[in-house]
Design a protein around this nucleic acid. Structure first.
Lengths: 152, 152
DNA sequence: ATAGTAATGTTATAATATTACGTTTTGGCA
DNA sequence: TGCCAAAACGTAATATTATAACATTACTAT
């Protein structure tokens, strides 16, 4: 994400946290910034490395606590199938996203298809299942990487 | 799964492997049986414990190799959001399943909604994304556990 | 029988995540 | 203000999940 957008999202995050009466502390802010700056999802230990830039001796709990907070607040998402984390680019409303993960280049697109989200929820309901958190991740190849492969 | 169904699925697995010219060895068979017998998903290390029943000194690779094989052959599935594995109850056709995971009791239902699978694939296609493996897991509460909660 | 491949054995280690407990910081309020 | 309780953070240890690397055995096809 470019600097301008980053700043915008960070300001949004700050105001959301203020509204909710929760604290976007400097550590949490740092983790969120690293996630948003990155083109690709980061593992908890990638983040731990990055945190050395802003903290003397960060330990795993430092990162995992910040991540827990960001996930709770919808400011970041965990990609379960690759154990990695991304910043959310539109955290201003609760949402059930779908993620497209390129197995070749590692880039991830976040999609928010309300029809799909609704279909999933309803399919659960049909058998009495109450969905709290949907995990929808498509592993595959992005447009760029598919094109590269075709040209071989 | 009860013994009768277990036997049926195991026979199906055997004939599928024979057709495909791949080997359902005794270790792979054992892992698949443990998965199918279990009411709940098993972690790789749960399986490792169980493997002590049939092997003197099983090590992690023993289990992970068997799991890799079963996943490749569509005889088992991995639940990414809980790092656990389940046996597939209808492995006779390739399929994109959805899983409903109860956060309370841990039980898992496998659903195969072709409309949803298709919608997801198409949503990817719309932006040039080629889906290879969809991961769809709904975390929530099953009918039983929801009922129990309501009665509180 | 034997060469080539697939499967397994074995040891070690990597990568991801949590527990437990002590200390510091913060915000509310007497 | 000064005190309290809750939240956040520091730190060490450990648990859980997964893979690497290399040796050995077993199967299959000629």
């Amino acid at each position: 994400m470019n600097k301008k957008d980053l700043k915008k999202v960070m300001q949004l995050a700050e105001s959301l946290c203020e509204q909710r009466g929760v604290r976007l502390t400097s550590q949490r802010k740092a983790v969120l910034e690293f996630l948003l700056e990155s083109e690709k999802p980061l593992s908890a230990y990638d983040l731990l490395d990055q945190m050395r830039e802003v903290l003397k001796n960060p330990a795993p709990p430092t990162v995992y606590r910040a991540l827990d907070f960001l996930l709770e607040q919808g400011l970041a998402h965990k990609l379960e199938s690759i154990s990695a984390y991304v910043g959310c680019v539109h955290p201003d409303h609760p949402h059930a996203s779908q993620f497209l993960i390129c197995a070749d280049c590692g880039e991830v697109a976040e999609m928010e298809d309300k029809m799909i989200a609704k279909s999933l929820e309803n399919a659960g309901k049909a058998i009495g299942f109450n969905t709290i958190h949907p995990v929808v991740e498509l592993m595959g190849t992005c447009a760029d990487c598919s094109a590269k492969k075709d040209s071989n």
